[in-house]
Write a protein that binds this DNA or RNA. Structure first.
Length: 628
RNA sequence: GCCAGCGUAGCUCAGUGGUAGAGCAGCUGAUUCGUAAUCAGCAGGUCAAGGGUUCAACCCCCUUCGCUGGCUCCA
């Protein structure tokens, strides 16, 4: 055998072997990277090759484990339910899924059976074997096996591919690019989680398949950690906390997708809205208000009738059609048009905490995150084309600033022209470029979301995550050349001629409802002091101090500290327990000592406490306000 | 809208054909107590709604409404 010399993670190694596994004996290695491509450990070795190992705990390693687990699940499903037709089964950010077409539905007992079968397959330590075939051979192979979905996938890959790769383990063969772990024995920690419907190829016109979700990790310990995380996340669910903390409610009597703010939620919302008004005034926005219903004709002019009708509600007033607003832009455009604008007036920035109503499909409604009526911190900026980049940059700065105040991490995306849209190609291109340039100028990373823009223009979306990692769009910045055109909006330029302004639609928090939902989950209900509906609960040890406790409450209220008084005939431990469950930031304990010294003992969420004067405590609370 | 699961007291949940049960919360009384639950008593439900099967339905069947997890769509 000839000697082969390769480098493994930069170290030179020699072998007489023929495949990568011959030089890598480490059981923690699940795959390798050669020339930038991920390959199996069974891939051939060649002299002088540089090999990078993929550890089972690395991001890529975990993805490979999950992907291999999905194959094992598919094998288990085929063995138990031979009528199930496998379709696709990728790894995901926190697990994997596999979609099957089957007449019968999978029950939770079926999942248990499948999981058992998977364990059997793992204990057999079946090797994953890669095979290559021409597309034609692969098509006839899957056709013979009665797997039409695989045939469709290969056919759609096109003829230029030549060969495709298949992976076989045990009795199961799947079309797959790989790589996979060397054998099923590597899969030591997995769990099936749920069944859900999913359209074939993600298109609602196609057949609905059954998707089995599962997750897998490199070790049982890591799996357990993840399952713990899920359990903890459920405790942070904003719907649960919203009820427990008496922030908001929903009611069957009112209807789905509608939110009722209870006193504490109302206070939280007011605090956020006051913050928003302040921050917008300071940045040169004007606050305006528009009506909720506007004539049908206006929605025709705007293009909503053609592009957004199915999401709108309509009503009739004195025999005339009115549309209930799903967006706030129209009133703002009319304000702009209410008089002749000079180039010197621009930019004009109209801000509205606008309550909008949209007909969302019944299945998508979700607590505060997705409602049928919500309030946007909406603004429309009318500017000259030469001001566009500066305005977009200022908005991005505002987003960064606000997200930092709330301590949120976020991701940005640019969405381009959708199929159903208005406006010229040139305008779309110009607008998309303006958005990209602004982000690039600031050096911010972003993803491109093809065809996901609003019907009137492209947009930058800012997404933040909820307790279990689902992304929700908050801020969005949309560039619009179309509505100014449709409403024949203009300003008088330095040359005395008419010019078309550009319009920016933008929200920072997005929907106040959604934002509060994410806020609740982010802080697990333990809000920062400045937005806590109740900042302190004042509690006396016995009735003897009730009078002093009331004085303390009055004094703090006078100083704008949001307090509640607990003078019930209960033990202090009971009162503290309740205040803790309500996630109140400060507990003020008053006994004979405090009453004698005219002080208060302030206990924090952490359990630490300190005795101080009322003035000292007021200063602490005031200092918690963000500087804006 | 689609697929699946679910809907019992304010909340969390028992109850698989013989007309409903617990804990917490609530109310009343006793207790006046220094850092996550003091004790006792009382009250609370057309079992989501409508229809059907049955001598009898919370339980089985159908329809509708709502909720949950996904898919599609979106702030």
């Amino acid at each position: 055998m000839p000697q082969i010399t390769v480098t493994v993670d930069g170290n030179t190694a020699t072998t007489e072997g023929t495949i990568i596994r011959d030089v890598i004996k480490n059981k923690r290695v699940v795959a390798a990277r050669v020339n930038g491509d991920l390959v199996d450990l069974s891939a051939p070795l060649s002299d002088g090759q540089a090999i990078e190992t993929i550890d089972l705990d690395s991001d890529e390693g975990v993805h490979i484990i999950r992907h291999s687990t999905s194959h094992v699940m598919a094998e288990a499903v085929k063995l138990l339910f031979p009528d199930a037709r496998p379709t696709i089964g990728p790894s995901t950010e926190d697990g994997f899924y596999y979609d099957f077409d089957r007449a019968e539905t999978f029950s939770s007992e079926d999942l248990e059976k499948i999981e058992k079968k998977m364990e059997e397959l793992v204990s057999q330590d079946l090797p994953f074997i890669r095979k290559e075939m021409t597309s034609q051979d692969a098509i006839s192979f899957f056709r013979e096996k009665g797997e039409p979905y695989k045939v469709e996938i290969i056919s759609d890959l096109g003829d230029d591919l030549g060969t495709v790769s298949l992976y076989e383990q045990g009795t199961f063969v799947d079309l797959c690019r790989g790589p996979h772990v060397p054998s099923t024995g590597y899969l030591k920690a997995f769990k099936l989680l749920s069944v859900a419907g999913a359209y074939w190829r993600g298109d609602e016109k196609n057949k609905m398949l059954q998707r089995i979700y599962g997750t897998a990790f490199s070790s049982p310990k890591a799996l357990k950690q993840y399952l713990n995380f899920l359990e903890e996340a459920r405790k942070r669910d904003h719907r649960k906390l919203g009820r427990e903390l008496e922030l908001f409610m929903q009611s069957d009597d009112i209807g789905p997708g509608m939110i009722v703010y209870m006193p504490k939620g109302g206070r939280l919302r007011t605090l956020i809205e006051d913050f928003e008004k302040k921050i917008h005034f300071k940045r040169g926005y004007d606050i305006v208000y528009g009506p909720s219903i506007l004539r049908g004709k206006l929605w025709e002019t705007s293009g909503h009738m053609d592009n957004y009708k199915e999401n709108m509600y309509f009503t009739e007033v004195d025999g005339q059609l009115y549309g209930i607003k799903p967006m706030n832009c129209l009133s703002h455009i009319l304000i702009y048009k209410s008089k002749v604008r000079s180039y010197r007036d621009l930019p004009l920035r109209y801000f509205e905490l606008g309550n909008v109503t949209r007909h969302e499909k019944s299945g998508v409604i979700h607590g505060l995150m997705r409602t049928r009526q919500f309030t946007q911190d909406d603004a429309h900026i009318f500017c000259r084309p030469d001001q566009l980049i500066d305005e977009i940059t200022a908005i991005i700065n505002l987003v960064e600033e606000v997200m930092a105040i709330f301590n949120f991490e976020y991701e940005m995306e640019i969405s381009t022209r959708p199929a159903k849209s208005i406006g010229s190609d040139e305008d779309w291109e110009m607008a998309t470029k303006a958005l990209m340039d602004s982000l690039e100028k600031k050096g911010l990373p972003f993803e491109i979301n093809e065809g996901d823009g609003a019907f009137y223009g492209p947009k930058i979306d800012v997404k933040i995550k909820d307790a279990i990692g689902r992304s929700w769009q908050c801020a969005t910045i949309q560039c619009d050349f179309s509505l100014p055109e449709r409403f024949d909006t203009h300003y008088v330029g330095a040359d005395g001629g008419k010019h078309r302004p550009v319009m920016l639609h933008r929200v920072i928090l997005g929907s106040i409802e959604r934002f509060i939902g994410v806020l609740i989950e982010h802080f697990a209900g333990a809000f920062p002091v400045w937005i806590s509906p109740v900042q302190a609960v004042i509690m006396c040890i016995t009735d003897a101090q009730a009078g002093y406790a009331e004085q303390v409450a009055d004094e703090l209220r006078k100083n704008d500290v949001r307090v509640e008084l607990d003078v019930r005939n209960e033990k202090i431990g009971y009162k503290i327990r309740e205040a803790r469950l309500q996630k109140v930031p400060y507990m003020i304990v008053i006994g004979d000592k405090e009453m004698g010294d005219q002080t208060i003992t302030v206990r924090e969420r952490s359990g630490e406490q300190e005795t101080m004067t009322l003035a000292e405590f007021t200063a602490i609370v005031k200092n918690a306000e963000p500087v804006i």
